[in-house]
Design a binder for these strands. Structure first.
Lengths: 113, 113
DNA sequence: TAAATACATGCAAATATTATTATATTTTAA
DNA sequence: TTAAAATATAATAATATTTGCATGTATTTA
């Protein structure tokens, strides 16, 4: 199984609005850099930096078509994650009635804030 | 649907090895702070900080049992995400044969590094 | 072959995150 | 009522991330 540290790293790389948008765009198919410039409304160098980060971490890749770089999704985990992020959850998980060990305690606890 | 910014935030909050471990421990049931101190091998204040971050963002909650604080999972997205992170993917996604727009280009492209 | 297009890189500034240390609060037990 | 246990908070220091900007390179077109 993929080790804890790597799982954290993977999520961290994805956990940025620009990069999530990039990945979502890529689930629709191949895009080149200027496509993201339009859809993200950030500067070209900034787009390039996000793409480089995603690529050097093996999440996306590209091929060259003349002066275009055509980026595509490589990491199969991504579509599943993006789907999960779109899933609607109606309710919070149920709070345990009491502490399973001491069989005591009350919820909700008193909070200072 | 949960907006882009929020999705990024959510992932960012989870994307830390200590916090992923905390959440995994919590899928097994209620735990108090000192349990994490043992299982994570980080300082008590640091555990507390991670727990506070998770709680103030609605991902976990606690109830009070004497001088223990019993933490539990609240955000239903978490178990699904943790499962997904454990899933094995055998192969990378297939690279497109050519640019769907220009019908040209070669993969892999030339890389500088 | 000069200009334009598409993209990448390096670096510095701004900001955010993390761990650490010290201290405070709450509760139970003696 | 005092001490200790369990946890939280605050301040700080160390790092990491993010962005902006200037510049650099490759490719195509005129």
């Amino acid at each position: 199984m993929i080790p804890l540290e790597k799982r954290a790293e993977l999520l961290k790389i994805i956990a940025h609005p620009a990069r999530i948008k990039i990945l979502e765009d890529l689930t629709q198919g191949v895009k080149c850099v200027s496509d993201f410039e339009d859809s993200l409304d950030i500067s070209q160098p900034n787009v390039s930096q996000h793409l480089t980060l995603l690529r050097t971490n093996g999440i996306i890749d590209f091929f060259v078509d003349g002066r275009l770089k055509c980026y595509f999704l490589k990491e199969p985990f991504i579509p599943d994650l993006l789907d999960l992020l779109k899933k609607e959850y109606d309710d919070d998980m149920p709070a345990p009635a009491c502490c399973p060990v001491t069989k005591k305690g009350t919820y909700p606890g008193e909070r200072r804030r």
